[in-house]
Computed example of a mutant assay.
Amino acid sequence: MPNAQIRSVKSTEGVNRPKRLPSKMRRLGLSLLAVIVLGVIVFLLVPSPIEPVKWLAPTAPSLEETGPWKLNNKLSAAQLVTDAPKSPEFITFDKDGQLFTGDSDGKIYKVPFDAEGNPQKAQVFADTKGTPNGLKFDANGNLIVTDIKKGLLSINPSGSIEVLANQVDGKPIYLANELDIAKDGSIYFSDTSNYGRVTFREIAENKPHGRLLKYDPMTKQSTVLLEGLYFANGVALSADEDFVLVAESYHYQLTRYWLKGSKKGTSDIFSNNLAGFPDNITRDEQGRFWVGIFTTRLSFVDQMHSNPWLAGIMAKLPESLLSGASAPAKHGLAAEFSPQGELIGSWHDPEGSLFGITTAASHNGYLYIGTAPGGSLGVHRVLLTK
């Protein structure tokens, strides 16, 4: 019996048994878990900085099926015009056909073309010390600029800058964004949001903070034409100037404000349920409207709109995380509309070499493409042959 017991003891030698963590490490792990759980509880209990409004966004149009939004590669062969401006938000041309565009650092560039239409080296035309977005030449050759930091500006041919308006009705113009100029010199422009900056929290909140404004060069006064817009963005007059369009980026629609006729002073929807966030609007010689789509629809944003609790939670996150979550999809997209609001066609770069598109401007047989921070860099163009 004693020998048997000895053999039994020996047979268990060398067997691996699970090792228990030292008590100090266990306590540390439990403490860390408790801190995390407590942090989550506090995060959930802290009031949200916004009170979101529920919105059931319409189902996004398919980019794969037949129809005007059908996927293609019309923008994939884009040619670089200049990379001097990194984020050329808007594009316009002077009477000599020179291209003008601004950059987010305040500089406005001029790009001449040779006799064959080839772009030459970009030159700095002016520096607003702000962020110039919309640009358009008036009848006197002055470049009228909407600068999101400075307001409505006029820059004469020598580059001198004058502030036309930075207030309306005694209140600030918070974020002057885009513009168009009527034949009588009246300037129609958007005041994007009284947030005064682009922030994901405004998307999550889903409340209208934007306005459409008019500047009268005779009285030198600005007036509010339309308010309660969901991120007022691009602006364009119709060929007959009987209405002006303004893009409501956060509701995927173009709104029409009537300037003449029986509907004067009223507004309606020109086109809705776009396949992305509309940015700037330009009008070509045929009276058609071109719209840059900064990003295709973001499914999580539409889902968030249907759930105010989730939107409120999202708004608590650091702005750096929110901005990353709402970065533009790497899919270039621009849309063409008839004067009546019918979607004629769409232009894509599904490969994402060209993306974050803000402007599509038709000029001399080319479609010129501008972008904003977060998108691809530089001014590009593609032939308008379809």
Rank of each mutant, 00 (worst) to 15 (best):
K330M: 10
S306L: 10
L321K: 11
K330Q: 12
S323Y: 14
A325W: 12
S323P: 05
D302Q: 11
V291T: 00
M304L: 11
S323H: 14
L321Y: 11
A327R: 15
R297Y: 06
Q303M: 13
S338T: 13
G332K: 02
E342K: 15
A335V: 14
W309P: 06
R297Q: 10
S326D: 13
E336K: 12
M314R: 01
F337G: 02
L322D: 09
D302M: 08
L317K: 04
S338Y: 00
G341N: 00
E319I: 12
H305N: 09
G332P: 01
M304I: 14
S299H: 14
S306F: 08
A335S: 08
S338D: 06
F337R: 02
Q340S: 13
S323E: 15
G332H: 00
E342F: 13
L298Q: 15
F337H: 01
A315F: 02
G332Q: 06
S306H: 10
A327K: 15
V291Y: 05
L333W: 06
A334Q: 04
S320F: 11
G341H: 07
D302V: 07
S320L: 11
A315V: 06
A315T: 02
D302K: 10
E342P: 08
K316D: 07
A335N: 02
I313Y: 11
W290M: 03
L317Y: 07
A325H: 09
F337E: 01
P308C: 01
E342T: 15
N307Y: 03
T295P: 05
P339N: 00
T295N: 08
L298A: 13
F289I: 07
S299V: 15
L321R: 08
Q340E: 15
V301T: 11
